[in-house]
């Protein structure tokens, strides 16, 4: 099987996974009692009406009296046509609420992802090249520190130091600032720094250990014998094979952080991003919005894994596309 067919097959599989996730979500939702129907019944009972009739009416109103397969078809169509329903708590469509959150999330997520992807492997390979020297130990110490300290806790400490004591950064995120401005960069610097330290540790460690293996490989001796300079040898002959195992760690790490820590960091720094939107929806028990953000995160993960698999095969020519 050629590369093109592999990509198509893998993409179809990702689509199938997303459908499975959607189906499971639907089944859970169908099995759970609908709070709005219960509310209608309670209201009716309080006002002396017939709770059963009121519940029936509420169900009809929301199409819940339809057979399961019709509701399933509607649900799936809704998910894939981005008709994700109405967010009660925010009085706007779910997709719009998510898009607004994404606008702020992207402002700090894009910088920290780029920084992590650029700096992590470089420092890791540098660490391996200077293994067991003070430079390596310093990088390792930094990696473990970032890896070990919880992001939200580190964020609070930095906010205390730079926001409260030094008054160098605003304590509460200001949404009125233009996206591309010094003030926005200043107020996002600390959350970006926190997320980079959190994500870079694992990537540095994996790059260091993988490249340690490759820098002692026979092909490095071949490269040296060819007259290749050390810098070129590391850039081409160590970095490239290191990226293969690293690509799996990288995507996993970035996704975990994007889906998990972002929320905590947004809450700490008061950024009205997608994590914050989800958090508020949970508090307000806004089912549609919670569902929407969950699905959004899940689809990001599915797409991330798809990219990871494709990148992996591009990076390592030995991986065969057969039997997949």
């Amino acid at each position: 099987m050629g590369f093109g067919r592999y990509v198509v097959a893998r993409t179809l599989w990702a689509a199938a996974v997303s459908l499975i996730i959607t189906t499971i979500t639907f089944l859970l939702l169908a099995a759970a009692p609908n709070p709005q129907v219960q509310e209608a019944a309670t209201q009716a009972a309080l006002q002396g009406g017939d709770p059963a009739e009121a519940a029936e009416r509420a169900r009809e109103l929301r199409g819940l009296d339809e057979p399961l397969y019709v509701r399933y078809a509607d649900f799936v169509r809704g998910v894939y046509t981005l008709d994700w329903g109405w967010a009660e708590s925010r009085s706007q469509p779910v997709t719009e609420a998510l898009a607004q959150g994404l606008y702020y999330t992207a402002q700090y997520s894009v910088p920290w992802t780029i920084l992590t992807v650029l700096i992590g492997p470089l420092v890791g390979v540098y660490s391996a090249a200077n293994m067991y020297s003070w430079k390596d130990h310093a990088a390792t110490g930094f990696a473990f520190f970032g890896y070990a300290i919880p992001n939200f806790f580190f964020g609070i400490i930095l906010l205390l130091i730079f926001g409260v004591w030094l008054e160098a950064i605003p304590i509460v995120y200001n949404t009125d600032v233009p996206v591309f401005s010094v003030r926005n960069a200043v107020q996002l610097a600390v959350p970006v720094f926190v997320l980079v330290t959190g994500s870079i540790g694992a990537i540095m460690r994996v790059s260091r250990n993988e490249s340690a293996e490759f820098q002692n490989a026979d092909f490095m001796k071949t490269a040296k014998a060819k007259g290749v300079s050390p810098l070129r040898a590391y850039a081409y002959h160590v970095m490239r094979p290191t990226l293969v195992p690293l690509s799996t760690t990288l995507v996993g790490q970035l996704l975990a952080l994007f889906l998990g820590s972002s929320l905590l960091v947004e809450v700490v720094f008061g950024i009205p991003g997608i994590g914050r939107v989800t958090y508020d929806a949970l508090i307000a028990q806004d089912t549609n919005l919670v569902l929407g953000s969950t699905l959004a995160f899940t689809f990001v993960a599915v797409v991330g894994n798809l990219l990871e698999d494709i990148v992996f095969t591009v990076l390592d020519p030995r991986i065969s596309y057969d039997d997949r």
Binding site: A223, R240, P241, D316, R318
Partner: peptide, 9 residues
Amino acid sequence: QESMNHCYT
């Protein structure tokens, strides 16, 4: 077997 880098042609 080991003297060439597996990532390049």
